[in-house]
């Protein structure tokens, strides 16, 4: 798969998956919070490895990463990434308090959000492709962006020098939550997705 193929039809399809998924995620978050949650139009990008850390403010920036495995017809992974400010905003919304640091309860709440958000995208992927996809229990890490991003970068490194990113901003009142989601099907699943979408 070269990057030029990526950039046309396939990108449009992936954008659509991103749009529907983000919509589902906003609805799920709104239900969870019993508040109205708005979102921007998600940005779907294919970016080069070397630019990946820059989009989150550098390799050494402290971020929260939530990682899940995909199973069934589509195998691979999802990484949901939040900057620290967004993670804390999100925890405060969910738990209705004012934390400054992430404690165990916050981490558990964030994992659950990761689960919901990932499910939203996976459901959209499933609906558009007719493929059955299940997700695992999430695993969460708080560390340097470069270190966390190395995991999806390595995974995509077997396929190409580029990674697929869906960037969405959720908004509740004055609170912003900037989420970055990396959808990482393995190479066979990737072909399956594209062929079911009629673009391969």
């Amino acid at each position: 798969m070269d990057s030029e193929n990526f950039n046309s039809t396939i990108l449009d399809v992936l954008k659509e998956i991103g749009n529907i998924g983000s919509g589902n995620a906003a609805t799920a978050l709104a239900n969870m919070l019993s508040k109205r949650v708005n979102m921007n139009v998600p940005k779907v990008k294919i970016i080069e490895f070397k630019d990946v850390p820059m989009i989150v403010g550098g390799e050494e920036k402290l971020v929260v990463g939530i990682y899940l495995n995909l199973r069934d017809d589509v195998k691979g992974n999802i990484l949901f990434l939040l900057d620290m400010e967004s993670a804390i905003n999100l925890v405060n919304l969910l738990l209705n308090k004012k934390v400054k640091e992430l404690d165990d309860i916050s981490i558990s709440a964030l994992s659950e959000v990761g689960n919901i958000v990932a499910s939203s995208y996976v459901n959209s992927l499933s609906a558009l492709t007719g493929l059955k996809v299940k997700i695992s229990v999430p695993s969460l890490a708080i560390d340097m962006a470069g270190a966390i991003l190395s995991v999806p970068a390595i995974q995509f490194g077997l396929i190409s020098d580029h990674v697929l990113l869906i960037e969405t901003i959720f908004k509740e009142g004055e609170n912003f939550v900037k989420g970055k989601l990396f959808l990482l099907p393995d190479i066979d699943s990737y072909k399956k997705i594209l062929s079911n979408l009629g673009v391969l």
Partner: peptide, 16 residues
């Protein structure tokens, strides 16, 4: 050579 994420089931990509 860290393992940033851990899962119960072994996954070769995580042992990378």
């Amino acid at each position: 050579g860290s393992q940033m994420f851990s899962f119960k089931k072994n996954n070769s990509i995580l042992k990378i």
